[in-house]
Simulated scan of single mutants.
Amino acid sequence: MGTSTPPPHEVDNLLTTSQASAEYGIPARTLQGAARRGVISSRRVGKTFLLDRASVAIYARTHTSRGRYARKDIA
Rank of each mutant, 00 (worst) to 15 (best):
R66E: 12
R71Y: 04
M1I: 11
T48E: 13
T5L: 15
F49S: 01
E10L: 12
T3K: 08
R66F: 08
R44F: 01
A35F: 06
V11G: 00
S4K: 04
V11F: 00
P6Q: 12
Q19F: 00
S55R: 10
L50T: 05
Q32F: 00
H63N: 12
R61G: 12
V45I: 13
T48F: 01
T64N: 05
V39Y: 02
T5E: 12
G25C: 04
V39H: 07
S41A: 15
G38Y: 10
R43T: 13
R61A: 06
M1A: 08
D73H: 05
G25I: 03
R71L: 13
S21I: 04
S41R: 10
R29A: 11
G67P: 06
G38L: 07
V45R: 04
A57K: 15
L51S: 09
A34M: 06
Y24V: 01
D73A: 06
E23H: 07
T64P: 00
R44Q: 12
S18Q: 10
P7K: 15
T62I: 09
V56Q: 09
S4H: 15
T30F: 00
R71A: 11
A35L: 07
S55G: 10
T16L: 14
Q32Y: 01
A20F: 06
K47D: 12
G2V: 14
I40D: 05
R36K: 14
V45P: 01
G2E: 07
R37V: 02
A75W: 13
L31P: 05
Q32S: 15
E10A: 12
T30L: 01
R71D: 06
S42G: 09
A35R: 02
R68H: 14
K72Y: 15
T48I: 13
G33P: 00
S42D: 11
S65Y: 03
L15W: 07
A75C: 10
A60Q: 03
L51H: 06
I74R: 07
T48K: 10
K47P: 04
G2N: 11
G67Y: 13
D73E: 15
S55Y: 04
